[in-house]
Structures are given as C-alpha cells and as structure tokens.
Design a protein around this nucleic acid. Structure first.
Lengths: 335, 335
DNA sequence: CTGAAAGCGCTAACAG
DNA sequence: CTGTTAGCGCTTTCAG
C-alpha cells in the first residue's frame, strides 16, 4: 500500500494538516517542519493521491483530446502541439479517436464529462448542423475548444486555419502554373471541406475560369477515396490538367491513380493537396501542398483552453484563424 | 452543478444508498424502485462522479499508454489497437509521447503512478539495461505490459514481434532477389535494433555472404537519419546492391538518397524496410517491408493488461511474440 | 428489500 | 505557525 499523508504525520508526530500544507509549500509552515516533512516523504516514496485531491479541489489536471483519426499525421501532429503546451503545466491528456464516427464521439464526450476533466479539445466528427452535443457541453460548463473543423457558426472557442484561403492559394498556384481545366476533389460537408471548395470556386471565377461538369468530385478523407475520385476525373472529356485535393492523403491517392493510367504528374495533371503531412516529401512524386501549421493549431488550442480554465467567468468565444501557406514540390511544378 | 445521488434520493424520498444500488443494478432493489430511480436519473441527466467512485473502489478505468513517437504511424496504429480493445470495456486512455526521451518517460511514469491508473502499456525509450523505472513499477504493483521494445530480458509482460525474424526475412528476400552486397541501416541499441541486426547477420552467414566493411551503419528511427546513412553507404566502394533498413521511415529516407544520386531502385539498389506503415504503398517507389502487425500488437497488449488487472495475484510474466511477414513491393522486386 | 454508519485520502476554512 | 472540524460524492458493511 502506498504511503499516505496520515502515515507521514504519525511518523513525525505532527498533524495531517501540517503535512498537507508543508508538501504544498503553504507559507504558514516553518522552514524546519517543512524540511522534516519533505525528507520523510522522500524516504517513504510518498506520492500524493490525485483522486482524493481532485475530489475536493474539483480539478483533475487532465484534459480530453478528441480527434477523428490518429493515423492521419495531421492530427497526430496537432496532438503533439497540445501535449507540448499542456504537459509542462502538469496536465495529462486523455485521448480519443472517434474514427470520424459522430455517435462514438458523442458517447465519448458524455463519458469524459463524467470524468470531471478540466477541459476538452475537439476536432469534431459531427456533420454541420448537428450541434446537440455542443449544447450539452455548453450546459456542463466544461471549458472546451474546437479545432480544425467548425461544426456550425457557433458561439464556441475555435482554432483552425483559413480554409477558404487554402482553396484560394492552391487554385491560384495551379492557374499560375498554367493549368486551365482545374478540378477539385472535395472533402466532406464540414467547414474544412466547404471552405476549401468555396476558395476554389471563388478563385476560378476571379480568373474567368469555370469548373467543367463533373469537375468537383467527392473524396472524403483518405487515400483510397482520393484514388477513386481521381479515376472518375480521368474518365471525363476533357480530363483536368490540374487537381486541387482536399488533403494530402487524398492527393497521394490521386497521384497513384494518375500514374497508373500512364499519365505524368505534373506534366499531364498537376496535383496539390493540403496539410503538409510529414511524408509529403517522400511520396512517389513529392507532393505540393498548403501548409496548415498543425503543430501551431494544437499549441494555440491548448493556450486558449488553459485561459478558459483559469478564467473565473467564461470568456467570450475566441476564434483563432491561422493563415495557410503554399509549399511547392514536384507534383505541381510545371515551369 | 451536476446532479448527485443525494439529489435524486431527496427528490424520490428514498435513501442515498437505494439510489446507489439501483443505479448499479444491485440485485436487492425492487424492480419498481429501480425504475423510479432510473427515470429520475435520466430526467436530471445524472452522471456518476468517477472521481468519487474511484476513491473508494480503487479503480479508475483509465490506462496509460506511453509511446516514443505519435507521428510514427506504427505507434499510432498500436494505439488504435489498444483503444479498440480497451474502450468497449469502459477504459479511457491516457497517452504520453516520450519523443524517445528516457528521462521524460521516467517522469511521466511517476506522474501516472500518482494518478492511480489501472494499468500501463509502454513502448519504452529506455536504453538496454536501464531498468530502474521498471523496478519502481514492479514495486508499485501496478500492472504493466511492455510492447515493441524489451528494455532487458526482464521478468515483465511483453508483446512484440520476433525481431530476429524480421532481419532474417528481409535479408533472405534480398538474397533471393539476387543481391549479394547487402548492407543494413541499423536501428538504435534496443531490442528491436539489435534483434533485426542479429537476423541480418545470421542470414548472411548462412548463405556464406558477409557484410563488407562499413556495411552496417547507424540509422536510429527517422527518415532524415535514413537519408544520411544511405549517403554514407553510397560513398563506399563497392556500394551495396541491397539494403535492409531498420524501419519504413528510415527506408523512405534511404530511397530518397539513392534517387538523388541518380541511381535506380530496385535495379541498382534494392531496398526493404520494416513496419508496413500505411503510406508505404504511396512512396516514390512503393516500399517493400516486413509487416509487424501493429494493430495486433496493441490489441494483444490490451488483452494481456486486462488479464493482469482482473487477476488477484500477479500472473507469471507472459511474452507474446508475433510472427512478422514479408510484403513485397516495387523497391525490392528485381525478378 | 431498504437504510444508517463509516470511511476512501485529501483540502478549505477557521480556531488556537 | 499548527491543528481541529467538516466534507468532496461515492461505496462497503452490516443492521433493520
């Protein structure tokens, strides 16, 4: 059985409170007693019991992190960013991978609420409009910040990237490289997917171009969907000469499909993704992409969350939008 | 403030204990009262307070997972496997990324011990021989299982892969493809690195081949180290015609270095990695690899852990070794 | 079948 | 500076 404060108190012939205060460096304990207590604690390998402490302080120093896919290195990097900021402050991170499953996410949020965590960071799998969970969250008074995806224009803290700008930057780049028949493998109907699509559309319009019939095709999140979507695009007449893909995994799948058909990237079809996942550089054709500072998203979300936790009264909803930036590699370089 | 049992009890005019038992489906509560309690609980959105419960039951239904790198998709997949088995049982997972830092790992283990988790799964960053932490763990009586790396031939539960066999399989394959000057970019001095090296050496010997001077070169874990190591190998005379790399990230870096030099993969240099990370198929040259069932490692570790948690008396140390299997792709296919 | 008493290990508030 | 009293929300034990 692990040593308790009670034991140390008895050993030293002082009260339990003295030990408690000494260990927490409370000011009203003499230098001497404090030393005796520390020494003894060290000796018996005393570790404060967090469960007991939490029960009375109502702080667990644990925060929950819910993400839709751990295997997607974008989210793994976000998680790193969160940890980097939170761990030095003494927080532990409880992680949950929803696998893009909205119900699983809701169940998990309920579970985490019962765990009395100090806060939650969520890259939500909820489709646009499904805001019931967030109402629950709101009512629970638990601080939480949404990242990457904004399930609705809600009054919640949010840290993400300017998704419209991702679409604009990628499309501008393809045009600048000489592409004229530019297609888009779009993402799901959540803020990231719709924002990028909007940027794409706006940019085409600005340059007097338009998306031909069938040029906007569904891709969802993964490389297999990118592969399929690209095959569809290649079946069109005329086929596109440039494709902006929702994210890097999708783009990787798309490249695979192009090469399989015997066409060349970027000469026949230029490809660009988004996310700058760490292996983009190593793909068959090094992938051009729009960087969205995954690490910074995690770090910023952690900062916003700690502010919320520290604040007595809930602060006004903050929206932090990080500016994306272009990373040109081989898959789109035509000049 | 969230509803407590006390509130439900008062509302219903029964005792707190009745509520407690009813909610946990204790047998000695009448059907009728149970229903009333459930209904009321539902109504007020009652969620049991896990902190309070844990304090008395000494069970937190949380397990810790310590891995050396979340960005390495091998470990992300292991984490998925762990979650897949543990979440249905009601466990939450507290994750920590040690970033291959042994001291950070030790600190974290101490922290997690104070948190009264139910168990720990660890892919340890401790170098061979540094077993102090594990002694601490042993003393704490907290169930734990080591995965992937075995810090020493300790009397601890362990789930991993037959590392020697990885070396054997990869090297046999290269020989079978006609390679005769086979180099190895080895991993760190931990069980995985030394095991794979041993398999490589043994297989060369078996075929009457030998590693030329400088043919075993250090690579550590990442793609940048693989790149550097490969550049060194290419500077040798004669250069190798086949390279077995510690893992897939290292192999990806190695391929990059080969191509940069103007040589061809696999014709000039055949390359094989290990781990079968999910993007292996999408690399510049699809990467041959030795699969080590990452998901299964996570799942099995979770199973062993739950057995330990359930057991009254600590069971004898189990060692589960999963057999690796060859996955041939373009980077090594010469016939 | 129901409930009263005691306590998990710790801290907040106040009294000495 | 030190200690006493009370209690966090729940469960275990045992008596009604």
């Amino acid at each position: 059985m692990a040593a308790r404060m009670k034991d140390i108190a008895k050993d030293l012939g002082v009260s339990l409170m003295t030990v408690s205060k000494a260990l927490r460096n409370h000011s009203d304990i003499s230098e001497e007693t404090r030393n005796r207590v520390f020494k003894r604690a060290q000796k018996v390998g005393y570790q404060p019991n967090w469960i007991a402490r939490s029960l009375v302080t109502r702080r667990t120093y644990m925060v929950g992190l819910i993400i839709p896919d751990l295997m997607h290195s974008f989210f793994a990097e976000v998680a790193k960013g969160v940890a980097k900021k939170l761990e030095p402050l003494g927080y532990q991170i409880v992680i949950f991978d929803s696998e893009e499953n909205a119900e699983a996410e809701e169940r998990q949020i309920d579970l985490l609420l019962a765990r009395n965590l100090d806060g939650l960071i969520i890259a939500s799998a909820q489709a646009n409009g499904r805001t019931a969970v967030f109402q629950t969250l709101r009512n629970s008074k638990l601080p939480y910040v949404l990242i990457d995806r904004m399930p609705a224009s809600m009054d919640a803290h949010y840290v993400g990237v300017k998704d419209d700008d991702i679409g604009v930057i990628a499309t501008e780049h393809l045009i600048e490289q000489g592409c004229r028949r530019i297609a888009h493998i779009r993402g799901p109907a959540i803020s990231t997917g719709t924002g990028r699509l909007r940027g794409y559309r706006r940019t085409l319009a600005k340059h007097g171009l338009k998306a031909l019939a069938g040029y906007v095709v569904n891709g969802l999140h993964g490389d297999t969907t990118g592969y399929q979507a690209m095959r569809n695009l290649l079946g069109l007449t005329p086929p596109p000469d440039g494709v902006f893909c929702y994210n890097d995994p999708v783009a990787a799948g798309a490249i695979k499909a192009v090469l399989e058909t015997g066409l060349r990237v970027p000469d026949d079809v230029a490809i660009i993704g988004a996310g700058n996942v760490h292996y983009s550089d190593l793909l068959r054709i090094p992938l051009s992409t729009v960087d969205q500072s995954s690490l910074a998203i995690g770090e910023t979300a952690a900062e916003v969350l700690t502010q919320c936790i520290a604040a007595k009264t809930p602060p006004r909803a903050q929206h932090v939008l990080i500016a994306p930036s272009l990373v040109v590699r081989e898959s789109s370089r035509r000049k």
